[in-house]
């Protein structure tokens, strides 16, 4: 029969070893993920976003006048709430 304090000592060992292993493993994973991100992450696409913005303007079925009216209404409503 192993004494409790000896068992506790073993458990402490497993604790230190376990936490170290978990951290090392996940740190490796972080490194690997950063490497993959360097190669495969989508580039910040300024060109694309302006395209999307333009498309939105073209596709927008709400007329500029209507937009102005809605904006003003929202503005007033916010004022009321405050």
């Amino acid at each position: 029969m192993v004494s409790i304090s000896e068992q506790l000592f073993d458990a402490l060992g497993i604790m230190v070893l376990g936490m170290a292993l978990v951290f090392i493993f996940l740190s490796f994973l972080i490194l690997a993920m950063n490497l993959v991100a360097k190669k495969f992450a989508p580039k910040p696409q300024a060109v694309k976003s302006t395209q999307v913005a333009q498309q939105e303007v073209v596709n927008s079925s709400v007329s500029p006048l209507m937009t102005a009216v809605i904006t003003a209404a929202i503005h007033q409503h916010r004022k009321k709430v405050l």
């Binding site: 458990a11 604790m15 936490m19 972080i30 950063n34």
Partner: peptide, 28 residues
């Protein structure tokens, strides 16, 4: 994937497991 550093938080929270290992033995 967008924020890999978050893995460190997932690692730190596992301390609960290993601390309880100690606690369970201490309960003896």
């Amino acid at each position: 994937i967008a924020n890999p550093k978050m893995l460190l938080l997932g690692a730190a929270a596992q301390f609960g497991i290993f601390a309880t290992l100690l606690g369970a033995i201490a309960l003896n």
